[in-house]
Computed example of a mutant assay.
Amino acid sequence: MTDVPVREVVRRAGVRRVAELAGVSPATVSRALREGTPVSAETRARVRRAAASLGYVVPARTATVAVLARFPTRWFFAEAVAGVESVLAAGGHALQLYNVGDPDGRAHFFDTLPVRGRADGLIVVATAIDEAERAALDGLDVPVVVVGGTMPGRPRIGIDDRAGARTAVRHLVGLGHTEVALVSFDEDEACGRETTRARRAGWAEALDESGRARGPVLEVGADVEAGDAAAGALLSLPRLPTAVFAMSDEAALGLVRTLRRAGVDVPGSVSVVGFDDHEMAAVADLTTIAQPVHRQGELAGRAVLAALDGARPEGAQLPTRLVVRGTTAPPARR
Rank of each mutant, 00 (worst) to 15 (best):
L286V: 14
R49W: 01
R17G: 07
R212T: 03
S271C: 06
A329D: 10
A165Q: 04
D276K: 02
E314N: 00
A119I: 00
W203A: 08
L234I: 13
R312Q: 07
E42S: 14
P330H: 11
A316R: 04
L137G: 03
D265G: 03
T320H: 03
R11I: 08
V323H: 05
A52S: 14
R156E: 11
T2R: 11
S269F: 02
Q291S: 07
A251H: 11
T327H: 05
D188E: 15
E225C: 09
A89N: 08
L218P: 00
E8V: 13
D188F: 15
R49F: 01
S30Y: 10
V304P: 03
V220H: 05
R212Q: 06
T328V: 12
A231G: 13
S25R: 01
G263N: 05
A231T: 10
H278Q: 12
D186T: 14
T150Q: 13
V18A: 03
A198C: 05
L113K: 07
G192Q: 11
G164K: 07
A50N: 03
D138Y: 06
V81I: 15
C191R: 13
R156F: 03
P216E: 00
R34V: 11
E219V: 04
L255F: 10
A246V: 12
V180E: 02
P114A: 05
A165R: 05
L68R: 00
V100A: 02
V173P: 02
A78Q: 09
G36V: 11
D309K: 09
E179A: 14
P59R: 14
G105W: 07
A107N: 13
A303H: 03
G158C: 08
A19H: 02
L299Q: 01
R162V: 04
G14W: 10
R17Y: 02
T288L: 11
V10Q: 12
A119H: 00
R12W: 09
G158K: 04
T327R: 01
D141P: 00
D160K: 06
T195Y: 03
S210M: 07
I159K: 00
A89D: 09
E250A: 15
S25D: 02
A190L: 14
P103M: 09
R49E: 14
E298D: 12
R166Y: 12
T73N: 08
V293E: 13
A63T: 11
A41D: 14
L308K: 08
T73R: 12
P330C: 12
T73V: 13
V100I: 10
M247N: 10
V6R: 13
A41F: 10
